[in-house]
């Protein structure tokens, strides 16, 4: 059985595979909900459809959650591994010369991680402390500002993310209240088979979500959430690039690679333009020589 599921995973797009498996679980819950309906057990019916919400919207929420809850932990891991990396590089080099040298980058990062263990407010106060800028003069003002902006954006993202989830879950609750209200009025439940039950339910949900997805509030909150997330990621990248922006770093920064891409594309356009011009001239030459 697992072999077949594995083969199915490789056959279908990853999204299809996930959505299909989730819908199998959803269908099981819907079947239970329909049985509760037949028994007029509306409380259990509502509990079943609530489980469907989690199963269905996790497809969307988990992608956005990646930038929220787990971000702090992965970033700390990144910092720790980078400190180890810079320390080991320095130890290697200076073992040839028996010189003891300060690892300014590593020291800053250890100081930074100590501050991060406290709350956000303390983090901001810690950074604003003059000592940070005096002790680590190689940190540019832009980088410090980027950190402040990243924290602000992260806060805003979390607020709009919660509002976004609330709008979607409220729509679910409203739609299902209407649906259950309708079911309570059905005189002969046994005449509604499972397929009809599912079709009726989805029709109710669709009509509510069609309105919600285009409502002014949802569109505004979705845009705000997306923009705040983009700001957070961009400011974080600015700060991360600072960590790598020193002479002995052998790695190219993303902004440097982007600049190279831009120049290549501009050159390609120029080459295409010249190729076209050469062809036109060849064509004109052909016409003239054939005359």
């Amino acid at each position: 059985m697992m072999d077949e599921l594995e083969k199915l995973y490789f056959k279908l797009p990853k999204e299809s595979f996930e959505l299909l498996l989730r819908n199998v679980i959803i269908r099981e819950e819907l079947f239970n909900a329909w049985r509760y309906f037949l028994d007029s057990d509306f409380e259990s019916l509502e509990r079943s459809v609530d489980k469907v919400f989690d199963e269905m919207f996790r497809v969307f929420f988990k992608q956005l959650k990646l930038f929220g809850i787990h971000e702090k932990n992965t970033f700390d891991e990144f910092l720790r591994s980078y400190v180890d990396f810079t320390n080991s590089l320095l130890r290697f080099w200076f073992s040839f010369f028996e010189i003891k040298e300060r690892n300014l980058v590593g020291e800053f990062l250890e100081y930074w991680m100590k501050i991060r263990e406290k709350f956000t407010e303390t983090l901001v106060i810690g950074l604003k402390h003059e000592g940070v800028l005096r002790e680590f003069p190689f940190i540019s003002k832009d980088a410090v500002i980027a950190v402040f902006r990243a924290i602000e954006s992260y806060d805003k993202f979390n607020k709009s993310w919660n509002e976004y989830k609330n709008i979607i879950s409220k729509a679910w609750v409203d739609a299902n209240k209407k649906f259950v209200g309708y079911l309570k009025m059905v005189e002969s439940p046994e005449k509604i088979d499972f397929k009809d039950f599912v079709d009726l339910w989805m029709r109710e949900l669709s009509s509510v979500y069609d309105e919600v997805m285009r409502s002014e509030k949802f569109v505004r909150v979705q845009s705000e959430m997306l923009h705040n997330l983009m700001d957070f990621l961009r400011y974080k990248r600015t700060f991360n690039e600072m960590l790598f922006n020193y002479p002995s770093n052998p790695f190219a920064l993303k902004s440097e690679i982007d600049e190279a891409y831009k120049r290549i594309q501009d050159l390609k356009r120029e080459v295409n333009r010249l190729n076209k011009r050469v062809k036109e001239l060849e064509h004109k030459l052909k016409e003239v020589t054939s005359e």
């Binding site: 959803i26 269905m56 949900l205 669709s206 979500y209």
Partner: peptide, 8 residues
């Protein structure tokens, strides 16, 4: 269109 495209 989550209901039609993810569920239905």
């Amino acid at each position: 269109d989550p209901i039609r495209l993810v569920l239905a």
